[in-house]
Design a protein around this nucleic acid. Structure first.
Lengths: 132, 132
DNA sequence: TGCGTTTTTGACAATCATTCTCATTGTCGC
DNA sequence: GCGACAATGAGAATGATTGTCAAAAACGCA
């Protein structure tokens, strides 16, 4: 159940999703990505898009954000742990690193006896372009 | 939009939801709270529970958490800005304040020119009771 | 290269929390 | 009390995500 010979296979569909994620900027929903693939002429089922994104997310190759709106948004991100600064109006996103926060979260959790600590953090604001 | 005469009316249902939230501990979903009300003999429609919770959340009287599971969880919280440290296994929750994080988020956002900044932060871990 | 095994795919149905609709009911100012 | 208007609630609608399962594609191996 944990890590036997999972034998992930290379398929046209999986490549198409990965390739698309490598080219587009910003966050996109599964439905959104599915539509883009269709526009490109790649025939990939919606179910497969969901499964592939889930797999990539589990593997840590992409980031998932769950905004209040409801849809899950996926994005290819730089490696390593980081957070996002997102514009409320236009969605423009900046990756930010916060060593201070990392250690703070870890420390606070430890103080309460919690172990195996992780966290999620999103910062929202209005970007310069949308301010005026 | 900001503070005109909204004229919120006191109703039995609204009171019931507020009272329930004041008594229960931890986070509960809307459906969960609705079931509790029913068990108490309070007849409140599910729609109304949703609406009331939304209103309370907008008013800042309760906190909303959106775990990966899917359901929104609501909880009566202490006033003021704070975050949550949640146990993955049993759900036990601790409120934590993080002045450091607040100022860090604000500063980072400013550096990128973002204004009107807010943020969400959740820390997950395994609590002492669930470790052994 | 051909074959069998096993994963993957995908069209469609199912799920399920949340929101919408709208006629009815309850509040509150007067 | 009365009347205007917000609030209620039962059921339908929405819409993203997940489950189903037969057919197709990949890979290991001879």
């Amino acid at each position: 159940m944990t890590e036997s010979g999972t034998a992930v296979r290379n398929t046209r569909q999986r490549s198409a999703v990965s390739a698309l994620l490598a080219e587009v900027d910003g966050f996109h929903s599964a439905q959104d990505l599915h539509a883009m693939l269709r526009d490109r002429g790649e025939r990939v089922g919606l179910t497969t898009v969901y499964r592939t994104l889930q797999g990539l997310a589990d593997a840590g190759e992409i980031d998932v954000m769950r905004p209040p709106g409801g849809e899950h948004l996926y994005r290819r991100c730089s490696e390593g742990h980081h957070h996002h600064l997102v514009c409320r109006a236009c969605g423009r996103t900046v990756e930010v690193a916060g060593p201070t926060v990392e250690s703070w979260a870890e420390r606070v959790a430890r103080q309460h006896g919690y172990v195996d600590v992780s966290h999620t953090l999103e910062i929202f604001g209005t970007c310069p372009s949308c301010t005026g």
